[in-house]
Design a protein around this nucleic acid. Structure first.
Length: 314
DNA sequence: CTAATTTGACCTGC
DNA sequence: GCAGGTCAAATTAG
């Protein structure tokens, strides 16, 4: 299980400039029970791929014309109507947040991809995600991630659209709201090289534990704990070096590397000493919940900088 | 073995 | 009819 140890890309993404939040109608219908579980079969007229068949194989296409000929489950009008009403109800209340970002991966929540679609006129496919707690807690939050068309080979910008708000709670100690896994060394490496793992299709950005700061990480530690809405932030972010990546200002200040991590040798080395005590992820050492925004745990950061942190329980 | 991702089929609104 | 969104079996990853 990966818990909150996603790369910090998504976090960064959320905090990049000018997200726009709107409350607009969104085609977002509540699934049965609002849990993300499959709808009752009686409401599902969808033809299913025969069990055992390979997905996406052309030879399976005969199912389109023959496998279900005359056998297609009857549509249940009442169910369709119900769905329609559910959609319409949702459409009036869903909040959407749109951001454009280099790093859409890490926003403090865990997302599960449930679909990908090539969008008409778009160079790259759009990926669809829902909150991993949608099943457990009925969290309605979803997001779509689509790489922008016009970016060149170097910076890859993604348009991330968030739909709905998180109703889930990270009350499990194993799943602190956000754990940024990073290291001074790793950050330095990341910021200087801008190396990021690439998804195979280049449209779904890397999403989890091996986020942007992991490529050359040698020590593991944790810095930021964030809570609540990924859409708003009172954290200020700074460009880190020339890579186009961003780091939180406080982080830079703490480590003495505002413009480039590579220029913070003293602070970084002292922190490395501290960090070498870490052998695993920090779960939730000090967590300051934010009422309506993200919170950088300054206290924890200071403790990181000033004293050994081995007393934290992981 | 379990969880996450992939991807073609299907649904729905326009 | 088309395009976008979602489902879910198959596949892959951990």
């Amino acid at each position: 299980m990966t818990l909150g140890l996603q790369g910090d890309d998504e976090l960064l993404a959320q905090l990049l400039p000018s997200p726009t939040t709107t409350t607009t109608p969104v085609d977002h219908y509540q699934q049965s029970g609002g849990t993300g579980e499959p709808p009752a079969s009686s409401c599902d007229g969808r033809r299913r791929r025969p069990r055992g068949s390979k997905r996406g194989r052309p030879e399976d296409d005969d199912s389109k014309s023959s496998s279900y000929n005359g056998e297609e489950p009857p549509r249940h009008h009442s169910c369709k109507t119900r769905r329609k009403k559910q959609r319409q109800k949702k459409m009036s209340t869903t909040t959407t947040t749109t951001t454009s970002s280099l790093v859409p991966d890490f926003d403090g929540y865990q997302w599960r991809k449930y679909g990908q679609k090539q969008i008409e006129g778009a160079m790259y496919a759009r990926s669809y995600y829902r909150c991993t707690r949608s099943a457990e807690q009925g969290c309605p939050a979803k997001r779509t991630v689509q790489r922008n068309d016009d970016d060149g080979p170097a910076p890859k910008y993604y348009t991330v659209v968030y739909m709905g708000e998180h109703t889930c709670t990270a009350n499990d100690s194993m799943e602190a709201p956000v754990i940024l896994e990073t290291t001074a060394a790793a950050v330095a490496a990341t910021c200087s090289t801008s190396k990021r793992p690439q998804s195979h299709d280049d449209t779904a950005p890397p999403t989890t534990s091996d986020g942007s700061c992991s490529s050359t990480s040698t020590i593991t530690t944790t810095g930021i704990i964030i809570d609540e809405s990924p859409a708003t932030s009172d954290i200020t972010w700074s460009s880190c070096g020339g890579s186009g990546d961003y780091v939180v200002d406080d982080y830079c200040g703490l480590f003495g590397a505002h413009d480039s991590w590579a220029l913070a040798p003293a602070a970084v080395s002292s922190l490395q000493e501290i960090m070498e005590d870490f052998t695993g992820p920090i779960r939730s050492p000090v967590h300051i919940a934010a009422a309506d925004g993200w919170t950088v745990d300054h206290q924890f950061m200071l403790q990181l900088a000033n004293e050994p942190v081995s007393h934290f329980s992981f």
